[in-house]
Simulated assay, not measured.
Amino acid sequence: MQIKIASRLLLLLIMLFISSYAMSQPPRGPLVVSPQIHPDKKVTYRYQAPSAKEVKLSAQFEKGPVAMTKEANGIWSVTVGPVKPDIYPYNFVVDGISVMDPANVAFFPNERFKASLVDIPGDTPLIHALKDVPHGAVSYEYYPSVTGTTGSLVVYTPPGYDKDASKKYPVFYLIGGTTDTEETWFKVGRANLILDNLIAEGKAKPMIIVMPYGNIEARIAEEKGGPKPADPMGRESEEAVSRAKTFEADLVKNVLPYIEKNYRTVNNKDNRAIGGFSRGGGQTLRTAFSNMDKFSWVCSYSAYLSPKEMESSYKPIYENASRTNQQLKLFWISVGNEDFLYKSTVEFMDFLKAKNVNYKSLVTDGGHTWMNTKVYLTQTAQLLFK
């Protein structure tokens, strides 16, 4: 009898707990599937907002916001496309306010607004697609940085890295752009999957990729409890150049020693490459030109240095062009013909050409986008360390 009473009490307590837990949960609306990619490459987006007066889709593959239609259950939807296969950022604009897609776990790592991401697959897998090939590993690392702060890195090691403890690898230091974080080359640029696929096809040498955070001042402010400083006014302003120097010092004095102590690396200039997109491309050029003893492979994606800055800070690069050409095994410059930095980048290339500094270039369609960066990385990764 006592056993039956105890069982009933236990069942009652469980029912009360479940009831209390259910009552404490926020109300749940209908299941929202978004984005939904159709076989014909059209994409349906949905957003639940019963009280909203207007919802629009803002996507990088559209020329402007696209109005969405409200359904009876309070879900707004729109179908667009077909869309060219690639990875694109998008968001919703709800009564004038930009919001992420709450039904989508994929987002764009950023210091500011974090857009959602849609990955539209190709009929033939794209170079950044997850394929049935050996995969490398991605690790998050923390290292002692400037002014007593702790820096953060994302590090890719190639397939087989953990199987042969005697093998050493070259290193590619790969930097994101303004407002990007150390995760952007990994989560948006898909550097790990691009290298996995190229290595599997025998098109790229196995290498370590180190992806640092480019905004040292923001990290210092965050860790010391201060406000994040505003971005410099102009890419060649005194403040921008000063911050690039801070990044350079951190990379050369802190990141390189940390990586070379904790990973199996070949520690000479011919086995180090540096590359970056946008602000990271400017950091790449300034760091490389100031440390020609450290890097033999330099990749600038959607970036430039002006003739004025070259003349004031980097005369040895072009005054002794033959020496520069011997020192650099690859000097790569790429940009899109609709990029807002296209004109300045072409001016930079013309300056180098006039000074007989050798470089390889690639001008693609499109603008200042992460769709283009994947193209640039794919092309340059096949040239590095060969």
Results as ranks from 00 to 15, higher is better:
Y263P: 03
N254F: 07
A218W: 06
K63V: 09
M68E: 05
G336Q: 07
Y342H: 15
K187M: 10
V346S: 07
D180C: 14
S34K: 01
Q60F: 04
T265M: 13
C299T: 11
K41S: 13
N358W: 04
D162W: 07
P257I: 01
K224I: 05
G275T: 04
H135G: 03
A22S: 13
A321T: 02
M23A: 14
G151T: 04
G336Y: 05
T157F: 08
Y258L: 07
G282W: 00
D132L: 07
D164K: 09
Y88T: 06
A165W: 08
V99R: 10
L153E: 08
S300D: 11
I259Y: 06
V66N: 08
E260F: 12
N110K: 08
K131V: 02
E223G: 01
V94I: 12
S98W: 05
A191W: 00
Y142K: 14
K70L: 12
E141C: 05
D196R: 02
D162T: 15
A381N: 11
K4F: 15
F17P: 00
I120V: 14
E223K: 10
S77V: 02
I120E: 06
Q382M: 11
L130S: 11
Y21Q: 13
E201T: 00
K56Y: 05
N291P: 08
T345D: 12
Y173M: 12
Y173L: 08
A244H: 01
E260K: 09
I120T: 05
T364A: 15
L330F: 10
K168M: 13
G282Y: 03
V363A: 11
A288S: 14
V133H: 04
T324H: 03
D339F: 02
Y304G: 00
V78S: 06
M292I: 10
Y90Q: 05
E111D: 15
V99P: 06
S19W: 08
M15R: 04
Q326D: 15
N215R: 03
M310I: 03
I127S: 08
A354K: 15
K167H: 14
R219Q: 10
E347N: 13
N337S: 14
I209V: 15
E141Y: 00
A52R: 01
P170R: 07
F17V: 15
T178V: 12
Y301P: 01
S361L: 07
R286K: 09
R286I: 12
A67R: 12
D180E: 12
D365W: 06
L16A: 15
P39C: 03
E54V: 05
S19C: 13
M15P: 00
N262I: 05
D270S: 13
E239L: 11
S290A: 13
P144H: 08
W76K: 04
V357E: 09
I5N: 13
K168T: 15
N356M: 09
D162P: 03
S313K: 09
Y142G: 00
E309T: 02
